[in-house]
């Protein structure tokens, strides 16, 4: 798990109480307006959202609804124009760059639609990158990266560059990289968007397995088949939350024995 943020309650009792009550993520009145053209373009309009630890939240909405913007703000990749963002009860908006970088590094893991691996690095080195910024020693970095890649069935691909890997393999490397520093929250933006269906299901099964192990997940998608792997559905339209409900067990897609499957891969 990620390191605790700096503002923590003073006593163990207070900590326990806060853990029970404090959501992992709390957004209040989050508004994002882009000023890149003469006319301001609102992307998010007063979003209120709480995410509890261990949730698997699918964010759906049509193009331009603000899904990706919400994900960027959740991941501290962008700053809201207005509103308040609390992570484990600590105000994130207004933190200095150094602190935001530390939060991104220790608390969040990102999985992108186009994998976003460094083309000049091997799979192993790609997984090591976040640990470099966390100051992990080289031997420990290597050990952790190998373990993660082995877990996702990539032990035979460690020294391969992204161009030598299939889309599914690249995305599994990206997931391994996202988990490198033991994050609190995994953020995925259309994680299966560039993959054929079979590989897409494989990736979603991995994410579901991670959630079953206690990882909090937020997946942005416009595809219900992908969203249905989650436990909660947040729907956006025109930068506003228009729906927020649990996904019923009968609606939910459940992973097959993903771990066994991956271990049997050549």
């Amino acid at each position: 798990m990620g390191e605790p943020l700096t503002q923590t309650p003073a006593t163990p009792a207070a900590m326990a109480e806060q853990e029970k009550e404090t959501p992992l993520i709390s957004l209040r009145g989050i508004t994002k307006i882009y000023y890149t053209t003469k006319t301001p373009v609102p992307a998010l309009n007063g979003i209120d959202l709480d995410i509890q630890p261990g949730e698997f939240v699918s964010v759906m909405g049509p193009s331009g609804s603000g899904k990706s913007t919400l994900l960027h703000i959740l991941g501290a990749l962008d700053v809201p124009t207005r509103g308040e963002y609390l992570l484990e009860g600590v105000r994130v908006t207004g933190l200095p760059d150094r602190e935001l970088s530390r939060i991104r590094n220790r608390h969040f893991g990102f999985v992108f639609q186009s994998y976003n691996l460094f083309p000049e690095l091997t799979a192993l080195e790609n997984v090591e990158v976040p640990m470099i910024y966390a100051g992990v020693r080289a031997t420990e970095r290597r050990r952790r990266a190998e373990r993660l890649l082995e877990r996702f069935g990539l032990s035979h691909r460690m020294t391969h560059r992204p161009a030598e890997l299939s889309g599914g393999e690249q995305q599994r490397v990206a997931i391994a990289r996202a988990l490198a520093n033991g994050p609190t929250l995994l953020l995925a933006d259309e994680p299966t968007g560039n993959l054929p269906t079979a590989h897409g299901e494989e990736i979603m099964s991995i994410l579901q397995e991670l959630n079953d192990e206690g990882m909090t997940l937020v997946v942005v998608t416009h595809d219900w088949r992908i969203a249905s792997y989650g436990k909660r559905l947040v729907e956006l339209k025109d930068g506003q939350v228009v729906g927020d409900r649990p996904i019923a067990p009968e609606e939910r897609r459940l992973r097959p024995g993903i771990g066994d499957q991956l271990d049997r891969r050549p």
Binding site: G75, N105, Y133
Partner: peptide, 16 residues
């Protein structure tokens, strides 16, 4: 530019 954005997303500070 893209690579810098990615490194920033993975935890690189401005100083890094």
């Amino acid at each position: 530019r893209h690579s810098i954005g990615l490194r920033r997303a993975l935890g690189a500070s401005r100083g890094s």
